Simulated scan of single mutants.
Amino acid sequence: MFFVSDSIFAQSRNLTVAIIIDYEFPFSVGKSQTVRLWAFFFVTLVKMNIGTATSEENPTNSYLGSRGIWITYVLILLITHFMLLTIPFFSVAVAWTLTNVVHCVITYFMLHVTKGTPWGTPEQGKARTQTQWEQIDCGQQFTPTKKFLTIVPVVIFFLASFYTKYDSTHFCINLVALGFSVIPKLPQLHGVRIFNINKW
């Protein structure tokens, strides 16, 4: 029968956890014999804030620039586009226009309407009044993350225009969607609430 009799924890950059396991032989005659086994587990610790997911006070500042996010973003975009292409009654032009419009609408609401931080407490300080876009990279302009998030809708717009053969109807729809995605990202509109919309 196995049972853990003791455990020893030593904190360092590499954490060694030694667990003492006693094994009692059921077939022994008379006094039971116990064999003590030592199991070592090595865990690499990452510097972090205890009790939180990251070491930052406001992870909204940097999560869009963290490793793997950009490629995940592009993959989700491609999967969405391929899913729209699989719908039999959608032409290639319609699929590209819908990809552009859906992307622009979702990113508009995620980056320019949503305020605060989902990881914070109800009392979020100045993050409470800032949109996600305004919090990225602590409000700095022209950072790699902000450039990437600005270039992607422009590239999708050009692709949608090309695959719709510059049809005027599709072009107007795609241009309006691009405006909703790119105009709020301009540095001149940082912190600006037009007609006090989304002020609180």
Rank of each mutant, 00 (worst) to 15 (best):
Q141G: 07
Q141I: 11
F142P: 01
F142T: 01
F142L: 13
F142E: 04
F142D: 02
F142S: 09
F142A: 11
T143V: 03
T143H: 04
T143Y: 06
T143E: 06
P144C: 08
T145N: 06
T145M: 03
K146M: 08
K146E: 11
K146N: 06
K147F: 13
K147V: 15
K147E: 08
K147M: 13
K147G: 08
F148S: 03
F148G: 04
L149M: 13
L149S: 05
L149K: 05
T150C: 12
I151T: 14
I151D: 07
V152E: 09
V152Q: 09
V152S: 08
P153W: 04
P153G: 06
V154R: 03
V154H: 06
V154N: 05
V154L: 15
V154E: 07
V155M: 12
V155E: 08
I156S: 07
I156H: 03
I156E: 14
F157T: 04
F157V: 04
F158Y: 15
F158V: 15
F158S: 11
L159R: 13
L159Q: 13
L159C: 15
L159T: 14
L159P: 04
A160Y: 05
A160K: 08
A160P: 07
A160W: 02
A160H: 07
S161K: 11
S161F: 10
S161T: 12
S161G: 12
S161L: 15
S161I: 08
F162T: 10
F162Y: 14
Y163P: 06
Y163S: 08
Y163T: 10
T164S: 15
T164V: 07
T164N: 12
K165V: 12
K165S: 14
K165P: 01
K165I: 12
Y166C: 08
Y166K: 06
Y166S: 10
Y166Q: 10
D167I: 00
D167F: 02
D167K: 02
T169E: 10
T169M: 11
H170C: 13
H170R: 08
F171H: 12
F171Y: 15
C172W: 15
C172H: 12
I173G: 00
I173C: 01
I173Q: 02
N174S: 10
L175G: 06
V176H: 03
V176W: 01
A177L: 07
A177E: 03
L178Q: 03
L178P: 03
G179N: 00
G179I: 02
F180K: 02
V182S: 09
V182G: 02
V182A: 09
I183D: 00
I183C: 03
I183R: 00
P184A: 01
P184W: 00
P184Q: 00
K185S: 12
L186I: 00
L186M: 13
L186T: 06
P187S: 10
P187C: 09
P187E: 07
P187T: 09
